[in-house]
Computed example of a mutant assay.
Amino acid sequence: MKNSALKVIAGLLLANNVAAVEPDWKDYASVLGAVKQGEKHGTPLAIVDYAALKKSGLVDKVYQQISAFPVESLSGRQETLAFYINTYNILALKTVVDHWPLDSIKDVGSIFSPVWGKDAGTIGGKTVSLDDIENKIIRPMGEPRIHLAIVCASVSCPDLRNVPYTASTLNKQLDAQANAFLRNDKKGLYIAKDEIVVSKIFKWFKQDFDKVGGVDTFIRGYRPDLPVSYPIDADIDYDWSINALNN
């Protein structure tokens, strides 16, 4: 009995100390490392050179890696969130690269068949769309900060982070993304004469922020400097232009 108990305890300790099972993000880090800060239509943002990515074939290489990754090996919430945030961003990059040149990612689809619902790739043996990744996998996990981390290849989207998301650093990375977005006065937040105007992201996904006290509470958590009496209005115009300089 004593030996059996010791084995159980040892097993639990080992299980708790097993390293996170995640893909090797080295090639994806190379893609992100080439993203440069710039400006388009007066908005500061992370600029992607899609022409160079198409020529290099690196995005497709990264896609093949995540497509072959055994998603059943993802054992925890942080691992799963990090994997699928990266996956969404990779599939968005792939969508643009595969159809380059484009003025907007929305040009891949149409009014009757939006790009978000189109097949974007195969993950875990299943064909998925960007909508599947966002709305069927990530959003149900109850983390509103993902809306400031997944990037739809557009000027008004949150910026692509210059390194991949990982389980061990995810919380700090998501906080940094939220902070950066809410300090970009061209697409995240600006103070008007008698109100605080923020991205329409906070209108489209309002219910997700209700889980953390609502949009107002969430935003003021990152911007405690905001006038207390000013209401928040999610009404910054959304620029769907591609996040590249050559369009």
Rank of each mutant, 00 (worst) to 15 (best):
Y84S: 02
P70R: 13
A92V: 01
K94T: 04
W240V: 03
R139Y: 09
R139P: 00
S229K: 09
V8T: 09
G42C: 10
F181M: 12
I90Q: 03
D60I: 02
V97T: 04
G125W: 12
T95E: 03
D98Y: 05
R77S: 07
Y222W: 12
T80E: 09
D119Q: 10
F112T: 03
A52G: 07
S73H: 13
M141H: 02
A82H: 11
Q65Y: 05
K55G: 03
D235Q: 14
I242M: 13
V21I: 14
F181A: 05
A15Q: 08
T87I: 07
L58N: 08
A82L: 12
E134T: 04
G125Q: 04
T95Q: 10
S67E: 12
T43N: 09
S241G: 14
I201A: 07
P114G: 11
G125F: 11
S129T: 05
K7V: 07
L74P: 00
L130R: 14
E134G: 03
Q177K: 03
K7E: 04
A68W: 08
P164N: 05
I47L: 14
I201K: 05
L93E: 01
T87H: 07
D225L: 00
D49A: 15
A167T: 02
E22I: 06
E195R: 10
W25M: 03
D194K: 01
F83Q: 01
D27M: 14
